[in-house]
Amino acid sequence: MAGAEKPTEVSRWKMFEGYNRRYNHFSPTLGCSMTFSIFFPPSSSPSPTHKFPVLYWLSGLTCTDENFIAKSGAQRMASAKGIALVAPDTSPRGLNIEGEADSWDFGVGAGFYLNAMNEKWKNWRMYDYVVNELPKILDENFEQLDTSRASISGHSMGGHGALTIYLKNPEKYKSVSAFAPVANPINCPWGQKAFSNYLGSSKSDWEEYDATCLIKKFNNTISTPILIDQGDDDKFLKDQLLPRNFEEACKSVNAPLILRMQPGYDHSYFFIATFIDDHIAHHAQALKG
């Protein structure tokens, strides 16, 4: 990261007395130009040293950094609670790797928040980007943010990313939540397609990016319950998401989980917008310290 370029602001919009700001930068980790969005809440403190805690949001398949910012309505509660929202993109872009755009559930827009082991997909290192590079960029360029007080959340593929990143780095995040996460990817078509291409054939490598496998290593390091909302009318629930597998794994090791099955809700941002305030409040409580 030495000598990484300063991110360039490409747009801004005022919202709930704060600002949505979008940035572009070159990512040494991914080897391409990347964008990310930040919602900065209004400063309610007269102290110039006041810093906002950070909630990272990881989006799902086909999304960019803009989906959450434009559709979730999370800014209202984030503004009230004084939490900055940070939304990265979902994969490298512009590398023109053969096959990267052949399907919507693999390649561009489908980074799965892992570090690829297949040489062809060596730039697909969204895990390192989210866990290491992006926080460093925030630390070095946005003095109003306090990345030592951070939580993480996400939707679908991004819910998978939030859960696995949190479980692999509980010391870095105060709390985790997810909407309709891909909770057991080694046992669903999306995960099997992505993992076999990005990681190869070794199931032990796959398990390192599967929340249901990772939670079984639980050693009482989680102080705040994991919050998951799942719509029971989600067309991906039965074949792709498998939240009950994660729930059973949590029960087996007494890991704290709040799994809320929401009647009649689907996989869309209408669902997310309905319950996002609960998630912001959940993280605000954990970020108080």
Rank of each mutant, 00 (worst) to 15 (best):
M1C: 11
G3C: 06
K14Y: 10
K14E: 12
K14C: 06
F16P: 06
G18Q: 05
N20R: 14
N24V: 13
H25N: 12
S27Q: 07
S27L: 08
S27M: 01
T29A: 06
L30S: 13
G31P: 09
S33E: 14
M34Y: 01
I38V: 11
S45Y: 13
H50A: 14
H50G: 10
F52A: 13
P53C: 12
P53L: 07
P53D: 02
Y56A: 07
S59N: 08
G60H: 07
T62N: 11
T62G: 03
T62S: 05
C63D: 03
N67H: 14
N67W: 03
S79W: 06
I83T: 02
I83E: 00
L85F: 06
L85V: 01
V86W: 05
V86P: 10
T90F: 02
S91Y: 00
R93E: 15
R93H: 12
G94M: 07
G94F: 14
L95A: 15
L95G: 10
I97P: 12
G99N: 10
A101Q: 15
F106L: 06
G107K: 05
V108F: 05
G109M: 03
A110V: 01
G111V: 00
Y113C: 06
Y113W: 11
L114D: 00
N115E: 02
W121D: 00
Y127G: 01
Y129T: 00
V131E: 01
V131A: 13
L134T: 01
L134I: 01
K136G: 12
K136S: 13
E140C: 03
F142V: 00
F142S: 09
E143I: 11
Q144L: 13
D146C: 07
S148I: 03
R149M: 08
R149I: 02
S153H: 01
G154V: 00
G154A: 13
G158L: 01
G159F: 13
G159D: 08
G159W: 00
A162P: 04
I165M: 10
K168W: 11
N169Y: 08
K172F: 09
Y173Q: 06
V176S: 09
V176I: 12
V176P: 07
S177N: 02
I186W: 09
P189K: 04
G191R: 04
G191H: 05
Q192K: 14
S196K: 13
L199C: 12
G200W: 02
S202P: 05
S202I: 07
S204I: 09
D210R: 02
L214P: 11
I215Q: 01
I215C: 12
F218S: 11
N219M: 05
T221W: 15
S223R: 15
Q230G: 02
G231H: 08
D233P: 04
L237S: 04
D239G: 02
Q240T: 05
L242N: 06
P243H: 10
R244F: 14
F246D: 04
A249P: 06
A249I: 09
A249D: 04
C250L: 09
K251L: 14
V253Y: 03
P256M: 11
P256Q: 09
I258D: 02
L259P: 05
Q262K: 15
P263W: 03
Y265P: 11
D266L: 08
A273G: 07
T274M: 15
T274G: 12
T274K: 15
I280H: 03
H282T: 05
A286E: 10
G289I: 15
